[in-house]
Nucleic acid binder design. Structure first.
Length: 802
DNA sequence: AAGTAAATTTTTTTT
DNA sequence: AAATTTACTT
């Protein structure tokens, strides 16, 4: 009996069926922790070893490099010892498209050549910014960022600028402008022989549509296709898959609609829900047995997700024991939350050095507090996301030189390095060059060439000094271009080219001359880049182009070290991973769920799925925490517990907060009245300026206020919410404004403190952010979803509390 | 043209 | 609070 059949025997019936169903369309609906990756990897091995499918006929597509790398190594593990004639292609959607386009983009006949450049988000935004400026539009009303997002969304729906323009409604001035920017942007990208991230998909899809020859070629090549995380595919990705499966229809997709969390990238959950319509005669297999988590954790996840309307009913079950309850911690502020998490991590690592812990947050910005706390305690950690190696300025500079050496028409790269290091080519000169290039309708490089060589008319009027500087820059770059394009016989290794870009451009020289610590660390980073190139030369050695593509398409997520004891990352980045111990932090309304998701029920459901993903990462133990106050943009705000907390059954939560907490309130309402229930109202934000309850003064203040409230007889319960029928959420919310249900004042006005909600006749429900003044002249700043922040005179606004 | 001070912005989530 | 962009000197 060989290894593979041994492995097959360890699979459950459903999993084995998914592996053995190799022909025709197959949808595997795989719940969290149901052994999805195992099924995919064993299936690939099965196709090769059992069915005799040549490996290069197999394509597996993932969303992230991390997932692709993981899959590759696990397939290798299973097939260890087998001698294979070729390797299956396991790739992300984006690298697959790059691969196709590098081969065949010329068949698209849109003027692009195989040496096209890839623009990252940053590059695109620069082009868009320039477009806005050149069209004479106002940057205030048309933020480059927002325009980029609109264009990207359009492209991900498979719509180019013409379709976008055709959908603009009459009189919609803003979209009309965006349509014009969109058009100009695409023209400029075309002229620079550049594709943005979205174009990679868009053009590949179009190429397969336009050229039956190319389509046939890849249909013949990829006879067995697998797609991971299918619930996250968008319409472009669906088109791509459909084009590639015209002949074989051996398409296996794996996913979980409950884990669809990329709607913001136009992922369309209907792709997985309608798979059987898109691919007739599809077979569907459900994987519902969870091997990862305790029953408690699954129950918690189920409790959250069952608040969603849109979902395919699935019931996860496990043979694992019930396990511990979920630990809950309420922190005073973000810092104390981080201290709690780190002290727990410290305990956990002390008792079991081999365990792995993850801290999961909604946004990257939240990582800082945890990093600081971990560093203070000298605990090593691994952070995923945020700033990646390839995003560092010095790395991007050198990569820009390298990109230019392959495609000098890349205007963005050219502008990036033309005066980096400083060569005396200033703003005046650059403006003039850009103007001239635009007038000539050609790339910047041509204009510079004309100025530097004196051949032809550049149309640019530059000072003699600038001309001299340009001549020298032109010479430097020209040499780099020649080196990169040297014939294969005298081939330069990539590392040589990288070194040349660092040294011969004067880049390293300028840094050394600086002599600061920062410059030193930049030099070290560049050394690391050279090391990466040396490594690359040893391993793959597919030339400079591949190296640069790799840099463009690699996010830091594949730097993820699966053996690290402590990992910090966003919930998005954690998808597909599992950890014995998980901390979900920042469970506050506005943070998680994110404030931008509160107004649309659709968005809120996606946040809920995100919560589901977060919870189901945990194997044995789960901590959830939130802070009462949090600093954002340097200002401190009162924050409320996340509504998701209220969706958890209280009996499965264990409170480990030091004093009374929201949870005590919530539980108190179920019959147990604790003495410590009464808390002071949260003072208006102003009273805090600079102070925290850590300082002695503030603690004194705390007790002073506390004394006032104890024994105070509360008024009637808020209208429409009889106490007996309060939901846990209502109870928590009452606590959220620092006012227990018993203590709520009868007059609405006095209940309006920052952090509480009010109802306005016109704007509806809003969150009170700030209160200024008192009595008749008091003003409130209230944030109304859909209307923004409003400043209201309390006396005239006619506000009601809930 | 380059360096400094002041003003403005930043936080979803990712290839 | 930190980082980035713009406006002002030299």
């Amino acid at each position: 009996m060989n290894d593979l059949s041994k492995i097959l025997n360890t699979l459950n019936d459903r999993q084995a069926e998914a592996v053995r169903t190799t022909e025709g369309p197959l949808l595997v609906l795989a719940g969290a922790g149901s052994g999805k990756t195992r099924v995919i990897t064993v299936r690939i091995a099965y196709l090769i070893a059992e069915k005799g499918v040549p490996p290069h006929n197999i394509l597996a597509v993932t969303f992230t490099n991390k997932a692709a790398a993981e899959m590759r190594s696990r397939v290798e593990e299973i097939l260890r010892g087998e001698r294979l004639p070729s390797a299956p292609l396991i790739s992300t959607f984006h690298s697959l498209c790059v691969r196709i386009l590098r081969q065949d983009i010329e068949a698209l006949d849109e003027g692009y050549t195989r040496s096209f450049t890839i623009y990252d988000t940053d590059d695109s935004q620069k082009v868009i910014k320039a477009c806005i400026k050149d069209l004479g539009f106002d940057e205030k009303s048309l933020a480059p960022r927002a325009v980029r997002a609109a264009i990207s969304a359009s492209k991900n729906r498979g719509e180019d600028h013409e379709i976008y323009a055709s959908k603009v409604e009459y009189g919609d001035d803003k979209r009309l402008k965006i349509a014009r920017i969109f058009k100009l942007y695409d023209e400029r990208l075309g002229r620079a022989n550049a594709l943005d991230f979205d174009d990679l998909l868009l053009k590949a899809v179009r190429l397969l549509k336009v050229s039956s020859e190319v389509r046939e070629k890849y249909n013949d090549r990829f006879r067995y296709i697998l797609v991971d995380e299918y619930q996250d595919t968008n319409s472009l990705q669906l088109s791509l898959i459909r084009s590639l499966t015209e002949k074989s229809s051996n398409i296996c997709v794996v996913g979980d609609d409950a884990q669809s969390i990329y709607g913001f990238r136009q992922a369309d959950i209907r792709n997985i829900l309608s798979f059987e319509e898109h691919f007739p005669d599809a077979k569907v297999i459900l994987l519902e047995q969870n091997y990862r988590s305790t029953q408690t954790i699954l129950d918690a996840a189920d409790a959250i997700i069952s608040n969603n309307r849109e979902q395919k009913k699935k019931k996860l079950w496990t043979e694992n024991p019930g396990g511990e309850r979920i630990f809950y911690f309420q922190a005073m502020d973000g810092e104390s939350e981080a201290r709690f998490v780190v002290s727990k991590i410290s305990d956990i690592l002390y008792s079991d050095r081999a365990t792995r812990v993850a801290v999961l947050y909604r946004t990257n910005a939240q990582s800082r507090l945890f990093e600081e706390a971990l560093r203070r305690n000298r605990i090593d950690y691994n952070i995923v996301g945020g700033f990646s190696f390839y995003e560092r300025a010095e790395i991007k500079d050198i990569v820009a030189y390298l990109k230019l050496s392959l495609n000098p028409f890349d205007d963005v790269a050219l502008m990036r390095v033309i005066n980096t290091p400083a060569r005396g080519i200033g703003k005046t000169t650059l403006d003039e060059l850009q103007r001239a290039a635009r007038a000539a309708g050609g790339p910047l490089w041509r204009t510079i060439e004309a100025v530097a060589t004196g051949e032809g008319s550049s149309g640019a009027n530059v000072t003699p000094r600038a001309r001299e500087a340009l001549r020298s820059f032109y010479g430097t770059l020209k040499k780099l271009v020649e080196k990169a394009n040297a014939p294969a016989t005298g081939d330069h290794p990539v590392s040589d080219l990288v070194t040349a870009a660092i040294e011969e451009t004067g880049y390293a020289g300028a840094l050394r001359a600086e002599g600061t610590d920062e410059a030193q660390s930049r030099i070290e980073n560049l050394e690391e880049l050279v090391n990466a190139a040396v490594e690359y030369d040893h391993q793959e050695g597919n030339g400079l182009r591949d190296f640069i593509d790799h840099a463009a398409l690699t996010s830091d997520t594949d730097k993820y070290d699966r053996d690290a004891a402590v990992t910090l990352m966003t919930i998005h980045a954690a998808k597909g991973l599992e950890f014995p111990v998980v901390f979900i932090v920042g469970l506050e309304d506005g943070v998680f769920p994110h404030s931008r998701s509160l107004s649309e029920p659709k968005d809120l459901e996606e946040e809920r799925r995100l919560a589901y993903v977060a919870i189901t990462r945990a194997e044995k133990r789960l901590y959830i925490s939130h802070a009462m106050r949090r600093r954002t943009f340097g200002e401190e705000f009162a924050s409320e517990p996340s509504q998701f907390l209220n969706e958890l059954p209280l009996e499965m939560i264990e409170d480990v907060s030091p004093g009374p907490s929201w949870l005590s309130y919530a539980k108190g309402g179920t019959g147990v009245v604790r003495e410590s229930i009464v808390r002071p109202p949260l003072p208006p934000k102003k009273a805090y300026t600079g102070k925290t309850y850590n300082s002695a003064d503030a603690i004194a203040e705390f007790f002073k206020d506390r004394g006032k409230n104890i024994g105070q007889k509360g008024g009637s319960a808020p209208s429409g919410t009889p106490e007996a029928h309060q939901t846990p959420f209502d109870r928590l919310k009452a606590a959220g404004s620092g006012v227990g249900p018993e203590d709520r004042p009868s007059h609405a006005a006095e209940g309006i403190v920052p952090g509480s909600y009010v109802i306005h006749d016109r704007y509806g429900r809003g969150l009170v952010l700030r209160r200024e003044g008192s009595g008749d002249s008091s003003k409130l700043t209230v944030s109304f979803p859909g209307y923004g922040q409003k400043k209201l005179i309390e006396k005239f606004a006619g506000l009601r509390t809930e």
